[in-house]
């Protein structure tokens, strides 16, 4: 089976994201970048499939600035077979639909059996590209995926819903947006890291894939840090019953939430 995973490089989850002076972007100097967490789950799902069926190939693609190469090396180190970087002027600020259209061109050429990606990227938290990819390719898609297996006549795909999972069967190619994999994304082995360093990563210019880079997307009007929560009321050293009674009253009368 041929699997293709689309990933995005985002600020690492441990970074204290700060709004820049222009109030429309974040400070990116000196921060650590990483593969977006849901995309890591997508890679892990693909690699688990490869563990079970060694004939599987897993390709990984990203659209972004030059530094996104590091994210691809990380994916290769985890065990993906090959990687491609779609980059160029404007790659960093491309909106969701345009990104999907560009990636769709790469996918059409690569002809994978399934495309996986995280259900949303942890920078914009939008959750559009996966569905948009499917739409552009004219394929079905399944979102909120936690598992998939090959069966006769297609692929069975598990979609997490309230109270359980819906199991869908795709007869042909489909896009999967991934919520979680059962196992944690694997830590690359050192030989994997070393091999990944030497692997070649071809580049494609994004302008060669889509005509209208300047199509209007979303405008960021302003960015702010979330409102600082003021320290609230602290209750301690008291009789437990008395504190409980007081809190119950406060929640009803002051906070008005019960």
């Amino acid at each position: 089976m041929k699997l293709l995973v689309c990933v995005k490089q985002v600020p690492d989850s441990t970074v204290r994201v700060k709004v820049a002076a222009d109030k429309r972007t974040i400070v990116t100097e000196g921060i650590t970048w990483a593969i977006s967490p849901y995309d890591e789950y997508a890679i892990e799902l693909a690699l688990e499939h490869k563990d079970a069926d060694p004939g599987t190939t897993v390709s990984v693609v990203t659209l972004g600035p030059a530094r996104a190469r590091d994210a691809l090396r990380q994916a290769l180190a985890m065990g993906c077979d090959d990687a491609m970087l779609v980059t160029g002027a404007g790659a960093e600020t491309l909106g969701g639909l345009a990104t999907a259209r560009a990636l769709a061109k790469v996918i059409e050429e690569a002809r994978p059996d399934l495309v996986l990606c995280g259900k949303q990227a942890s920078d914009d938290d939008q959750g559009l590209v996966g569905q948009a990819l499917a739409e552009t390719l004219g394929w079905p898609h399944v979102a909120i995926v936690t598992k998939f297996t090959s069966v006769t006549g297609g692929t069975e795909i598990w979609r997490e819903v309230e109270g359980g999972h819906e199991v869908w069967k795709a007869a042909g190619p489909a896009v999967l947006t991934v919520q979680k994999s059962e196992k944690d994304p694997r830590y690359p082995s050192l030989p994997g890291i070393m091999k990944a360093k030497k692997k070649e990563i071809p580049e494609k210019d994004v302008s060669s894939l889509i005509p209208d880079l300047a199509s209007p997307g979303l405008e960021i009007i302003s960015l702010e840090p979330p409102p600082v929560r003021k320290a609230g009321r602290v209750m301690k050293d008291g009789d437990v019953k008395a504190m409980a009674a007081e809190l119950a009253k406060l929640l009803r009368d002051e906070a008005k939430v019960v």
Partner: peptide, 19 residues
């Protein structure tokens, strides 16, 4: 349409607009 939403896993509050 102008919306206020969170970005960066809740670390940033963004006001965004789209036609």
């Amino acid at each position: 349409a102008v919306a206020v939403r969170s970005m960066y896993a809740g670390k940033v509050r963004a006001t965004i607009a789209g036609a």
